[in-house]
Write a protein that binds this DNA or RNA. Structure first.
Lengths: 242, 242
DNA sequence: CGCACCGTTGATAATGGTCAACGTTCGTGG
DNA sequence: CCACGAACGTTGACCATTATCAACGGTGCG
């Protein structure tokens, strides 16, 4: 089983074979999004629901002076805008500067899914709670952690999230973004991202070459970043109703 | 009608008289939370759902070195943990250092509400989307705005949110927090909060005395902060299904 | 009255930003 | 296959913002 959506949702609720078959059916036909393309633009009314199947997308907001803040990375198995069809208009843009594979699912299909498949409905709701938890974790990092720990924390998070969907192995993952993108994520300048990265490399915590992040000693990086993965609410057994 | 929950949810979906009556029934009996008290603690399993009816509560996370990051303010009409009963354990604490009135609603009541009252269900889902949007807005502020604009932006947001539930008037609102709390919200030191506040006062944008924030010229403050209220998704008419 | 807690101020230091230049890589077209 | 240009990464010098430390004043509550 290598469908990232299914792999992810298994963490939110126990799924039946039927659930899995339905999810497989709606997600197998993806299309490639070209580099530097916005999927949904701020201010427009969202129509269909988009699901990332390969690569990275991100949520971001542009300020009037041209500054950009990335507020989320969307990795395989993540929905761009699951419940957002309820709103009149998007308050942020979803884009990808890196090429990724997306499945576009009609809102009606999602509605039907949640009506007929209670376990899927539950898993989807779990996934939006996790999205919110990630946002809170980013806020904590940005507000209270120094640049090096903030960066280390982000890398730990990405490692774990990508591992749960089979897009990272034990000590690293492919990462096509630029240092400028990381700057816009962490609220740091490119220059400082570069220097922080060198510091982490100097400490033998992270190396990043050829669009791949390698982590020599995951445990050390996690403890350096004070990374506590509980906010990702993986491990379905503990999410079962009592 | 001065029930903040109803006033708020009216922005999420059109409610019937019956909807309103049900909401009134579950929310009229609140209890006072004493100063410096946590409502739900990180690591515990959430049971009932808590609703703020008066005053402020906040979500926060503590780091190992004692630093605290506040990730949300909960104002009257806000649920502390609407969907969170789905999760095994809280990934953050909800507390109030300021005394506020809370209604505790059993999870089963909420479930029944959403089953029998589709418009309320819709409004509740809208409210969680808005919570997420606020989180994104805070991240943008923290990452890209200077301390003064960040602070001004927060004050604009609170003004608007409190106005929609009838807890602010046209030019200000009661605000019982300390400057340290604001520091933990904006990721700034107390000293810098103090100086930033003085700067805003010097510019005649905000004054804060006797636990009340006064805004001499709301329009000027909003433009100073580049505050665009659309992320709050108020104004129900634009949220109607097409 | 006295003790906390909060707000305020000044001095000093650290973190991270800006500017400018240069090197490197990679994709494109000749 | 090579030349070119654009985008990205790297470095150094300098500057701005914000943190830290320490002290003191105000205010409100027991």
């Amino acid at each position: 089983m290598s469908n990232p959506l299914i792999r992810k949702l298994e963490h939110g609720a126990p799924l039946s074979d039927d659930d899995r078959a339905v999810l497989e059916a709606i997600s197998h036909k993806s299309r490639r999004i070209p580099t530097n393309h916005d999927i949904i633009t701020e201010g427009t009314r969202p129509a269909a629901v988009n699901l990332v199947m390969r690569g990275f997308a991100c949520r971001y907001k542009l300020l009037s002076d041209g500054k950009r803040q990335i507020t989320a990375f969307l990795v395989p198995g993540d929905f761009c805008d699951l419940n957002v069809t309820q709103l009149a208009e998007m308050d942020h843009t979803i884009g990808t500067g890196w090429g990724c594979d997306i499945v576009e699912i009609p809102g009606a299909t999602i509605d039907e899914l949640t009506r007929k498949h209670p376990r899927i409905a539950r898993a989807l709701q779990w996934s939006t709670l996790v999205d919110e938890a990630i946002l809170r974790a980013w806020l904590v990092s940005m507000g209270q952690r120094s640049a090096d720990k903030q960066m280390a924390h982000l890398i730990c998070e990405l490692l774990v999230r990508l591992q749960t969907v089979g897009f990272a192995d034990a000590d690293g993952f492919d990462f096509p973004l630029s240092q400028l993108d990381i700057g816009d994520t962490l609220g740091l300048s490119v220059v400082h991202v570069n220097r922080t990265l060198q510091e982490l490399r100097g400490l033998n915590l992270v190396s990043w070459k050829h669009k791949r992040i390698h982590i020599p000693d995951v445990k050390r990086l996690k403890s350096f970043a004070e990374f506590d993965p509980r906010y990702l609410h993986l491990n379905v057994s503990r999410n079962l109703p009592t």
